[in-house]
Design a protein around this nucleic acid. Structure first.
Lengths: 257, 257
DNA sequence: GCCCGGATGCCACAAATTACAACATAATTG
DNA sequence: CAATTATGTTGTAATTTGTGGCATCCGGGC
């Protein structure tokens, strides 16, 4: 059996089943352990799989990684989530966008009861559904593997049928000129639509978002009631924001529980 | 079984069900108590779960009980999933309904590439997205906490825009008269609509579904091309099914890998 | 509160498995 | 045939897992 055949066998097994042990390959292919180990090393070198003690694992183990993804400035986002959630009473209707900061809001909202939730984020959906009498509506659309959020025409079409008490959206960036910005046009359009789909619109953005830019300017920023962050913005941005009818709320990491 | 696989098993069980006991892992994985304890210590070190007396708890104080439900006849459903997935080539478009048997199909479809998937099931969505170049579209609607499936007018409205190569739906029951039945009207209507939204319609139903009844009769059963099950139906039902233009496929638990 | 049996935690050591490197042998190529 | 590459073998170090002993914790009965 040729080396390439062996490696193809290993790779396909790993990819269909998620893992393989060296002992198993040895049984099936009748070659020495060392040869297999070398094959695995070669495949791992080419980033086709991940080598482990006694075997190999698939790289595309996309199942629970979504929720595991490292969150930068987790403490700040948790604080933002707590403060944001404190605006929402039991029984309210809430639209939740995607993004890790908004997920922090979803986390904090787990303490509320009888919410009606609309979200395009699979993770927030999982957190709030079946809990405390909440009703969760998932916005349809194509799911982005990166963040587990739906996007596209289906999403906006469904959203257009609803109007909630609150909407929480994140920001790709908040530019020095005080513009709300996102990285893709689709996301920006969804956020823009969301902002006019609730009585009280809230943008959550941790300190890292300020003073940066992103390719797409999001409309309807003037519809926003609160901007929740975890540090007072720089004077330049603060001035720009002062021109808007929004109130900036700064969350304290120490406060709350 | 590799160490990382064990740890992944422990973690996913803990996260879907909230807790796990060492005794239970020991029964299922057949490794020593110490090994499990070491796995749990390692996972706890990495802040992935919380160690307790005799087991471990999830950190995320939520997580749906969605997947909690014990799957009855798991082997049969796995076989049905394998056989069903064998109908689907790489690159096809597939509609997946909710239900544990259809989830078995989703599991088996993880080996395919470049699928376009439409599903109203959060679990199937998670399994297939971000994998092998698949594109997954989530059907919007109100999420049922029991099974993580969306349902309602939004779901049907979005589905109406699409037509796929294959559709896989489950069955609440298949009556002695050979009727396809479901437990709620909404689910029945969605299934009925799905059946006419694909070129090849497949109903998957394990042996426990036959000869029972459920409150709602599902229309368009005559649109079904294949009925995949894991045991030959009783003669009475077989006769009733023979009147329909469908082919019954019986999956063998032994076959396949 | 106290005692007790069983389960569990934790430690140290043994056994088994695996990794890695060095070298020998076989296969392939020019 | 020589050179090169691939594979097998062997020996040792490192890692992982199992085992047994003993301390500790838990729940129940008194």
């Amino acid at each position: 059996m040729l080396a390439e055949e062996r490696q193809r066998f290993i790779l396909s097994t790993v990819n269909t089943r998620g893992s393989i042990s060296i002992a198993e390959i040895k049984r099936k292919l009748k070659v020495s352990r060392e040869t297999i180990r070398r094959d695995i090393v070669a495949l791992a070198d080419g980033q086709r799989l991940r080598k482990t003690h006694g075997g190999a694992l698939s790289l595309e183990q996309s199942e629970p990684e979504m929720t595991v993804r490292q969150v930068t400035n987790a403490a700040g986002k948790r604080a933002i989530g707590r403060l944001s959630a404190s605006l929402v009473p039991d029984g309210a209707s809430v639209i939740l966008a995607s993004g890790t900061t908004v997920q922090a809001v979803a986390n904090a909202l787990m303490a509320r009861r009888d919410l009606t939730v609309f979200t395009n984020n699979v993770v927030s959906c999982g957190k709030l559904m079946g809990r405390n009498g909440n009703r969760v509506h998932m916005l349809g659309g194509e799911v982005q593997p990166i963040n587990g959020a739906t996007l596209g025409r289906d999403t906006t079409a469904m959203l257009a049928n609803y109007f909630a008490d609150f909407v929480f959206i994140g920001a790709g960036a908040i530019s020095p000129a005080g513009w709300l910005m996102d990285y893709t046009r689709e996301e920006g359009e969804l956020h823009s639509l969301m902002l006019q789909s609730a009585r009280t619109a809230v943008v959550v953005a941790d300190q890292g978002k300020f003073g940066r830019t992103a390719p797409v300017r999001v409309g309807n920023f003037e519809k926003v009631t609160y901007l929740v962050t975890d540090r007072k913005p720089e004077p330049e941005i603060a001035t720009a924001l002062a021109a808007l009818p929004l109130e900036v709320l700064v969350a304290d990491e120490e406060a709350g529980g």
